[in-house]
Amino acid sequence: MTAPVLQVSDLDVHYGLRRRRRQALQGVSLDVSAGETVGLIGETGSGKSTLARAVLGLVPSSGGRIVIDGEDVSGYRERQWRRLRRRGVVQYVFQDPLRSLDPDLTIEDSLVEPLLIQGVSRREAVARARTFLDRVHLSADLLPKVPGEISGGQRQRVAVARALVTEPRLIVLDEPVSALDSANRVQVLEILKELRGSGVALVFISHDLGSVAGIADRIAVLYQGELVEVGAAAAVINEPDHPYTRLLVSSAPTLRAASATRAEREELRALLSV
């Protein structure tokens, strides 16, 4: 394993001011190495999206350290963030492919945007966009179309291609396949699997353990703003330690019925609700 692309240590994030101040993340530490896929699991409000947004500098942290590609970004101001982002080191893929592409821009315009921001010439940017469109198994015929003219699965693959064009070291994917149907889900997951060979680190956010189990090397479980479990995927799934992880594993629907009995689940729920 090489040096981590992302190092988060003891991160705190708060929302709101004064009396309405709420802690969204508490003492979260997580390293992601190059070429590694980490599944970040948590329920609604567990802070998983907050963690992703903090890593991208979209929400300020109130304590702890974030190091991206060797650069400590903890105290960064807007201008420094913009400089870092322009290098295209970190990219993000949103859950909803319907809203993550500008409906008025053609696919080509959306794809080349990150490159144009970097100052790459239009001609070269388009050439690169074509390469990466090919990487996500889409044909160049889509380039002149607008998002409304292509399917949801294609849109999500365009969003992945847009995240790839700057050749980032780290991509954060927020529920990238939740809004897709089966066939497209498999396609996008295949593409992500292929990416791992190229050395890019992936953080795959999901509320469903089942949807990242097949792709993640390691799994991190967030519960109520704290990281309650981190470990190799097989270990977390087979020998979950924290009651919430155990409940997650036992709740995830599988084809052979749930892995725990109803009584076990009830017991875990009771344990957590205390």
């Binding site: 979209l58 809203r99 008025d104 990150p114 921001i117 970097q118």
Partner: peptide, 26 residues
């Protein structure tokens, strides 16, 4: 507040870029 503007910001876009590229047409 749209995701595509956020995506542009994550790619390092400035306010001017966002306004010219995304806001203006809407």
């Amino acid at each position: 507040r749209s995701q595509y503007v956020e995506a542009a910001i994550i790619s390092g876009a400035s306010v001017g870029w966002v306004v010219r590229r995304h806001v203006w047409a809407k």
